[in-house]
Every structure is written in C-alpha cells, then in structure tokens.
C-alpha cells in the first residue's frame, strides 16, 4: 500500500471514529428524547460511512468492496425510517420534551 492511501485510510478511520463517538456523546448528554434522536441518526451513520469508506480503500487491491457499499447504502436508507418510527412511538407514549422547546408534538 502506498503511503498516500495509508494517510487517507488513517484520516478516514479517525474521522469515522470521532463521529461515532460524538453521536454516542450526544445520546448520553442531550436532555430529552427528541434531541437525543439527532445524534445516532446522523453522526453515527456518517461515522460508520467514513469507516466503511476507509475499508473500501484499504481492500481496494483485492477488488471492489461491494459489501461495504451495500452496508453503507442500507444504513443510510434505514436510519431515517427507524428515527421516524421511534419518534412516532415516543409521541404516542407522551414522552416529555425538554423545557424551552417551541411548538408541541402531535397527539397520536
């Protein structure tokens, strides 16, 4: 592996790990359910996407990594759906939103 690809793979790994960590920090730190929903659906998805990309580049000498692409596309397609389902479930159960939230969730 040439040094340039090594640098690219390392940078993508670090970026991916950092985003995954930020998503988890958001999940642990943010005050209510609806704000917590933001961390995992995006930061974690983007983080895993970056790690996948680094894997694709790392294994590029063994042929094109179609499994990684499939996993990434699948994650990007399903993240909004599960976030939406969870938001609906939370609204149905009447989960409290934090103080200072403008507007109201709908009655289910």
């Amino acid at each position: 592996m040439s040094p340039i690809t090594e640098y690219i793979v390392s940078a993508l790994l670090i970026v991916g790990g950092a985003f995954t960590l930020v998503g988890a920090i958001g999940l642990a730190r943010l005050p209510d359910f609806f704000t917590r929903l933001h961390g995992p659906t995006k930061a974690t998805t983007v983080g895993v996407g970056a790690i996948m990309l680094s894997s694709v580049i790392y294994f590029s000498s063994h042929g094109f990594g179609i499994s990684e692409i499939l996993i990434t596309v699948f994650l990007f397609m399903t993240a909004p759906v599960s976030a939406n389902m969870l938001a609906k479930a939370a609204m149905h159960m009447g989960v409290k939103s934090m103080k200072g939230t403008q507007g109201n969730p709908w009655e289910q």
Partner: peptide
C-alpha cells in the same frame, strides 16, 4: 430531512 443533521421528521 431526517438524514440532514439538525432536523428529524417525526410524523
């Protein structure tokens, strides 16, 4: 909307 950070569509 759900994928672009900062917003989640709920219903």
């Amino acid at each position: 909307i759900s994928l672009t950070p900062g917003t989640v569509s709920a219903d």
